[in-house]
Design a protein around this nucleic acid. Structure first.
Lengths: 340, 340
DNA sequence: CGCTAAATCTAAAACGATTTAATTATACAA
DNA sequence: TTGTATAATTAAATCGTTTTAGATTTAGCG
């Protein structure tokens, strides 16, 4: 913006035509003679004209943008989601405006405000991954009147796209039950996060009548280090299965146990969740539950586009996508063959 | 943008004052009476006013935005960089506009065009990670006249911030040489990518007079699977050291070798590069070279802000940040103690 | 050549904010 | 009361586009 860029009227003056003609020409309107169109395009290129999006958006009253807030871009799960969203949104002819809330409610609200100020045509809301009061964000989203879909989490009163985590967890539990475990440790993050609470509920439900002794451990964060250290605490009194709430944590567990000479799955089974890179990049590939991130992205954008398209505000819609149990080598030494 | 949002003149009408007053009030100007200011703020909140950034940017001729293009958000290295940049930029009072080129030169150019059209005040250019013709992108960047700094890679004629990869590789090699290796395999990605070529040159230079037999392997991509399979190919004729061009590849190598019962570092040393999550989340923690990503981000933003601030176009500046050799357990069984 | 229809082109308004210069209101001193 | 200085407000221009209705040119044809 320093050297005041070339504008449409620069081109007009240069060519001795009106601004309207230039604008029309650049938008390839048949209202202007093909030859003029070409001349305009040429001098536009010559002068290095680049349209000013702010001006265009202002007058057109539409931004061609879709916004997304994600809690943490270093988390491979969200990174993949953003990548897929970016592709899907691009296909629809819009551009994606990405915001990172860093798991901070204040930043999340700020991001939402920015999206609204930018007059995005739709918002994709991926809530914070950490216990927090989200009511501020919700109020902003609702008041804005901008079509919104919440992805990866369920928030009532809002259109949501997510995987059926309960079902995934159930499948996982019925798989590990084949090994007739006497003792199961469930390794999770903090309480009060929907996606975690959800898995835990499903886990407890599915494990209830298994006769196994179940211990739930909550760690302050769902990361490698935490899980690694927690696994150390388990050494004295090893369970048959350690169910981890995501792959990254499971990897921490696997690495600690391996280091201590404990064999997986012979001595203990370990499971992950998400089917992220970590589940294959583990020394013993992880049994896990796949969340189909490309599908989440696709459905999210599809739904959002539908909301944007309809002028009446339709009922909010919940889409629970199927998950898939991925059996690898970290579970059930004795029944591995029949399960595969 | 559907139900035509509340504007400044709505507030003005509602209050019986002029638009100027409202604008001034909202910007907390002392030109308007404190009491009026309060009244304006109140009804603004009441009506749910959200400023229209397009309009503001248009008239102010500044966007308060800094743009960044990165090749691949799923790559933890770039993800961390983006996160850090996002924080630094936020501190400076600007907002960061993130674009993903997906390692596609066309998309990269598209992203750059979008940034220019959005009239970002500065651009952070992280070039594609894959052999490609970048001249289109460069031309766009240069013609734009917008202050730009290239991060993580060196492009001549452009201000750049990156780590001193050569120096890092030299340190790594001199560490490895303590083990007196007879045979070293260097595992890299495709040729024609600056950051890779750079490491390789440095590696070859530093290894030249070591008396070791050096084999360079180029894989089509710098990822886990590729490295995993490549390691399989090495089984018959194991080297003393396998130097990998990044941690993710090193992890692939470690996992394959471990699976095959080969002990690291007893039978073979493996090194990574970057000091990413993978270097600790490896069953045998990786000796690697740390790139200080927060520092890259900080310096990049600092330099960019300086460029934006100065009205004369200053000489382009190259900043090579120091790297650090991180010695973990994957190298040099025999000299580990003295090295640590 | 004159007339109409079709093809091109342009004037002007609009979008929603900021900002400056000018105007009006208020306060205070003489 | 008047005048003046200061405080508070506002009118109007501006940013760079798009778009519509109207103006102008061109073409076709008898």
């Amino acid at each position: 913006m320093k050297k005041s860029a070339v504008t449409i009227s620069d081109i007009a003056r240069h060519l001795g035509v009106s601004e309207a003609t230039v604008s029309l020409a650049l938008n390839n309107s048949t209202m202007v003679k093909a030859e003029t169109r070409e001349r305009v395009r040429l001098t536009a290129k010559e002068l290095g004209y680049v349209p000013n999006l702010s001006a265009r958006r202002l007058v057109m009253k539409k931004s061609g943008m879709i916004g997304v807030v994600v809690p943490d871009i270093e988390n491979v799960y969200y990174a993949s989601l953003v990548k897929e969203l970016s592709n899907r949104v691009a296909e629809s002819g819009c551009s994606l405006s990405i915001f990172i809330s860093s798991n901070d409610p204040k930043k999340e609200e700020r991001a939402i405000s920015d999206m609204i100020s930018s007059r995005v045509e739709g918002m994709i809301y991926v809530p914070i991954n950490t216990p927090a009061d989200l009511s501020g964000s919700r109020r902003l989203l609702e008041r804005s009147g901008i079509p919104t879909v919440c992805a990866t989490t369920l928030i009532d009163g809002m259109s949501c796209v997510l995987c059926d985590l309960e079902d995934g967890m159930k499948r996982l539990v019925s798989h590990i039950r084949l090994g007739k475990p006497k003792k199961i440790v469930y390794l999770s993050g903090p309480e009060g996060v929907y996606t975690l609470d959800c898995r835990q509920r499903a886990f407890l439900g599915a494990a209830a009548d298994s006769g196994a002794e179940v211990t739930v451990i909550h760690l302050p964060a769902v990361d490698y280090r935490q899980a690694f250290e927690a696994a150390r605490g388990l050494l004295g009194n090893l369970p048959d299965v350690i169910v981890c709430v995501n792959d990254f944590m499971a990897l921490g567990v696997v690495n600690l146990l391996t280091e201590k000479g404990i064999s997986i799955p012979r001595d203990v089974s370990v499971t992950g969740f998400d089917d992220s890179v970590f589940s294959i990049a583990s020394p013993v590939p992880l049994t896990t539950v796949r969340q189909d991130i490309p599908a989440i992205a696709e459905k999210t954008v599809e739904l959002l586009l539908k909301l944007i398209g309809s002028d009446t505000t339709p009922e909010s819609e919940i889409l629970k996508l199927p998950t898939e149990l991925i059996i690898r080598k970290s579970t059930n030494k004795n029944i591995k063959e029949e399960a595969t």
